[in-house]
Structure formats: structure tokens, C-alpha cells
């Protein structure tokens, strides 16, 4: 029974850790499927984390915070698109630039506006955060651990953004594989010339994909600062954007496998936090750093073709020059 409790709690933590990864990875999926490398996930999320926490602290409304977070992330997505799509700049350079700009700008503004050493104030007022929603009878169900605890911890008790992320995956799969927009998006990442020949604007599609990515990263960043924690602190995305990118590659740029990769990485993270120093049967104590590095090692092995094969969209990273 104790092991069952432990597993349920690890799984519940997995869901919480996976949420921003899923949002960011799906954001990257749209962008990369259109042929634009999305290394800027980290910066867009960090900007959203700061903007949402700052606005939530100032106005007392988590929803206004969400709006600000999405707006900030969207603005950066448009900067990257302007540089890479309109001016055909280097996509990796543009994204790294944005990541570094945000790493400097967010704490600088936080320091100036709130005077708390580069943080935003604690969000502890009513309505300032996205809090868990208890489903009916969740409290009562705890008394019967099987399956009550699973119901109370896994289905109930999460905040709105978690459920949004859960719904996002089937929705994106539907958009990508069942709609005209999705077909064009996939085509433009594989063969932009063909799309252009069919009279469809390559640049417009890539802008649309960047906008979707910006919005979703905004939601992910808002989750990090106003749902998973109570306020913005320096560098709080802590590489989650790159981890999401790894999950996207590990999921071979497809929605459901990407979700699975996010859950796997989040499970490793949640497990590592709870199993620190606990010897595993047959393995012994696994260094926590190894578990932290595991997603990155797996992704490198995958990219190297040692575990399966990851085939990126063909036109990824190549700016499209319309023939005059």
C-alpha cells in the first residue's frame, strides 16, 4: 500500500512537471513542422513567466497575467519570425539572441519595478495564481485508496492549464493531420517550393506557425510562474525549453510520441526528486545527476541513430527564398 501511494504521488508530480514541457514541445512542433527551428522556446517561456507574474502581482488577476504572458511570448515569436522569415536570418542565431535577451531583460525589469533583487513579489493574494481544481468527491475518495487516491491525485486537483495541456495534444494531432492548414503546414516544412508553386504563401504559413508557438509558450511560461510556483525568480525556466525541444525530437516531431517523451522525461525528474539517495533494487543508488542528464543523453543517442531514427522536417532551418 505504501508503494502504491508512492507511485501515485510520483505520477501526480509527473503530470505537474510534464505540463510546461508538453505545452512548449507542442509549440515547437508547430514551428519546426513549418521549417523554422524553435530554439527560442526557453526565452519565450521565461519572458512569459516574468510578464505573467509581474502583471498578476500588479493587478491581482491570474487571467490578466496569462494575457500578459502570452503577449510577451508572442512578441518575441514575432521578432524571431521577422528576422528569420522576412529577413531570412539565421534561425539558430535569432533564437539564441532572444533567449539571451530575455535572460537579461526579465530580471533587469523585475529589479527595477519590484526592487526585490530580480524577483517578482510572492503571489499569495486570492485569484493571483492558477490553483488546483478539486473534482467532486475527491476528498471523500481518498478514504478508499484504490482507486480513490488515483482519482484524487491524478484526475482531480490540477489547475486549468494542466487540463488545457492534456487537451492540446489530441487537438494538435487533429489540426496537423486532419485539417487543410495542418497539411499545408507539414508540406511547408518538407518542401516549401511545392507549397509556393501551389500558390500558397510560405511566409504566411511560417508566421502562423510562429504565432501558435508564441501563444503556447506564453501559456507554458505562465504555468511555470503563476501555477507551479508563486512568482518569478531569475532563470526559473532552468532549461525546460531545451528539454521540451529534446522531447520534441525524441517524439520525432509527432504529437502523441512527443507527449510520451514529455511524460517520460517528467517521470524521470519527478522520480529523481523523490528517490534521492534511495537504493533501487538490483541497481543501487543512482546518482541524481545521471537522471537529470538522462533525457539529453537519450536525445543525443536518438539523433545519432543508435536508438531508433529521428528524421527532422526536410526544410528545417533553411530560409525560403521566393524566386523572382
Amino acid at each position: 500500500m505504501e508503494a502504491y501511494r508512492e507511485i501515485i504521488l510520483i505520477l501526480a508530480a509527473t503530470i505537474r512537471v510534464a505540463t510546461p514541457l508538453v505545452l512548449a514541445a507542442i509549440a515547437g512542433l508547430f514551428s519546426e513542422r513549418s521549417g523554422v527551428i524553435d530554439l527560442g522556446l526557453e526565452g519565450k517561456m521565461l519572458a512569459a513567466a516574468f510578464a505573467s507574474a509581474a502583471v498578476a502581482a500588479a493587478t491581482g488577476s491570474a487571467w490578466l497575467g496569462l494575457g500578459a504572458g502570452v503577449a510577451a511570448s508572442l512578441a518575441l515569436a514575432l521578432v524571431i519570425a521577422f528576422a528569420c522569415v522576412t529577413h531570412r536570418g539565421n534561425q539558430v542565431v535569432a533564437a539564441m539572441a532572444v533567449n539571451i535577451i530575455v535572460a537579461g531583460l526579465a530580471p533587469a525589469l523585475a529589479l527595477a519595478w519590484f526592487d526585490q533583487g530580480g524577483q517578482t513579489p510572492q503571489l499569495d493574494g486570492p485569484g493571483q495564481r492558477f490553483l488546483g481544481i478539486a473534482w467532486p468527491w475527491a476528498q471523500a475518495a481518498r478514504r478508499h485508496p484504490v482507486p480513490g487516491l488515483a482519482y484524487a491525485e491524478l484526475l482531480s486537483g490540477h489547475n486549468l492549464i494542466v487540463y488545457f495541456a492534456a487537451a492540446l495534444v489530441p487537438a494538435s494531432a487533429w489540426v496537423l493531420y486532419r485539417t487543410r492548414f495542418g497539411l499545408r503546414l507539414r508540406a511547408v516544412g518538407e518542401n516549401p517550393l511545392a507549397v509556393d508553386t501551389a500558390g500558397i504563401s510560405v511566409n504566411l504559413l511560417r508566421y502562423q506557425a510562429s504565432i501558435i508557438s508564441g501563444i503556447l509558450c506564453g501559456v507554458a511560461g505562465t504555468y511555470i510562474s503563476t501555477a507551479a510556483s508563486a512568482g518569478f525568480v531569475r532563470d526559473m525556466t532552468a532549461g525546460k525549453g531545451y528539454l521540451a525541444l529534446a522531447a520534441l525530437i525524441f517524439g520525432k516531431w509527432r504529437p502523441y510520441p512527443t507527449l510520451a517523451a514529455c511524460l517520460l522525461f517528467a517521470f524521470a525528474d519527478a522520480g529523481a526528486a523523490r528517490l534521492q539517495g534511495v537504493p533501487l533494487p538490483g541497481i543501487g543508488v543512482v546518482p541524481v545527476q545521471l537522471i537529470i542528464a538522462l533525457p539529453y543523453i537519450l536525445t543525443v543517442l536518438l539523433l545519432a541513430g543508435f536508438v531508433g531514427e529521428a528524421v527532422a522536417p526536410k526544410a528545417i532551418g533553411v530560409p525560403y527564398t521566393k524566386e523572382k
Binding site: A83, M96, A97, N99, I100, A103, G104, L105, A108
Partner: peptide
């Protein structure tokens, strides 16, 4: 942090 911002802008 302002210098990190300048650094990012220079890259951009």
C-alpha cells in the same frame, strides 16, 4: 543583467 541584454541584442 543589462549587459546580458546588450549581449543578446548584439547577437540579434
Amino acid at each position: 543583467d543589462m549587459v546580458i541584454l546588450i549581449q543578446g541584442l548584439v547577437i540579434l
